[in-house]
């Protein structure tokens, strides 16, 4: 199933800001949708995948580019 793709720009926000923005986005998303979070907070880059694993969604990619983390998540349920 191909879902929609959305980007959440949480650059400049500190922990747990990027995670909370992702969760708000996940609530509004449909199963199969992909959300890409942009974050400049190093802690969030580690914490977001932990949350995704814990609640049972899917991490598609975690890439760092010029100090910005791009974390892509698929809503699994």
């Amino acid at each position: 199933m191909m879902g929609e793709k959305r980007q959440i720009d949480a650059r400049g926000s500190f922990c747990p800001g990027p995670l909370m923005e992702l969760i708000a986005g996940m609530k509004a998303a449909k199963v199969g949708d992909e959300l890409e979070v942009l974050s400049t907070d190093k802690g969030s880059a580690a914490d977001i995948p932990e949350w995704v694993k814990k609640v049972g969604h899917e991490i598609l990619a975690t890439i760092e580019e010029n100090g910005v983390w791009h974390i892509t998540v698929r809503k699994a349920k």
């Binding site: 926000s13 500190f14 800001g17 909370m20």
Partner: peptide, 13 residues
Amino acid sequence: RKKAPSFKTLFEQ
């Protein structure tokens, strides 16, 4: 000074 979410926002979330 930095852009941390306010504690009240965190409780609301």
